[in-house]
Design a binder for these strands. Structure first.
Lengths: 157, 157
DNA sequence: CCTTGAGTTGAAGTCCACTTCAACTCACAC
DNA sequence: GTGTGAGTTGAAGTGGACTTCAACTCAAGG
């Protein structure tokens, strides 16, 4: 009735290597029952946990944070669709932020391709007389003032 | 006249740790002249190279590939803005692909939040009678047939 | 001169997410 | 009952991108 999966079956169905599944178990991300002969047997819910792990990794979340998130699932009952939805939703802003940063990087690159200045975030400010300044689709500042990231903010020539 | 930078100055102006700059040099990403006392002195063009390295890393390119790209710069003359523009442009499709994947992931997440199925790419297909199916902004397949990624494509329940 | 902060080196360490290995044991079809 | 493919363990290895360390030298102001 419980219809348990071997590690090979879970691996095949999740696309995650057995060694990775054992690693996840060591980190407390998933769990397994054991047969009399000490082999792992996974409940079907572990399939969802693995799916959540892989999705979260794509979002850019570390295994440590994923573990924390999974720890917030109710222990008493099988997690409901709403439980999973809550966890997934918790990565939304992170995902949006990553998308926003990459999009901004792309736009800045587009905007800077004409001048080749590579300074991004600054080239139009540093070259107010530039023929490309203030036109076209590129290099718009999205944030009020990105003073938080000094990495590439300095002058470069 | 050449106005060379010490490693500390390059570090301060690029936001990259001195140890990282030495590491980049070992990998052949940047170069430095030496003083009589064997200290590094960087030409200003290295500032651009470091900027290009950090930008490329944000795009998700490995140092090895960045080195290859930098190797394609002309050795005879100082790289022109057009040279830098060409290199930056070479990451464009990669950046677009990353943005596309993350955006798709977000839309899939949004689309799946109602059902909590976590299968993504498949939930609407697997649940044609789902009240959420076929509407809203989520879970649209962008590629003709993403058969390439079996990772989470299997059934999950 | 001399002090002091900045710079030099190679080797080793770190962190993350795994994979590989050797030496076993289990489960199941025949 | 036996062969075989699947599973077990802890320890060690991998790869990328650095950082840290110890032991030393350089450069520049007072």
């Amino acid at each position: 009735m419980p219809d348990l999966l071997t590690i090979g079956e879970l691996s095949a169905r999740s696309g995650v290597a057995p060694s990775a599944l054992r690693y996840y178990e060591r980190l407390g991300l998933i769990r397994a029952d054991r047969t009399g002969g000490n082999q792992r047997r996974y409940a079907r819910v572990e399939l969802r946990r693995v799916a959540f792990i892989r999705i979260s990794q794509q979002v850019g979340v570390s295994l440590d944070e994923i573990r924390e998130a999974l720890d917030s699932l109710p222990e008493a009952r099988t997690p409901s669709p709403q439980d999973w939805a809550r966890l997934s939703a918790s990565w939304r802003s992170r995902l949006n932020e990553r998308i926003r940063l990459l999009t901004k990087l792309r736009d800045d690159l587009d905007g800077c391709i004409g001048c080749g200045c590579l300074s991004l975030q600054r080239c139009t400010l540093n070259n107010p007389e530039d023929t490309l300044a203030g036109e076209g689709p590129g290099a718009r500042l999205v944030l009020p003032r990105p003073t938080d990231d000094p990495t590439l903010a300095g002058s470069l020539s």
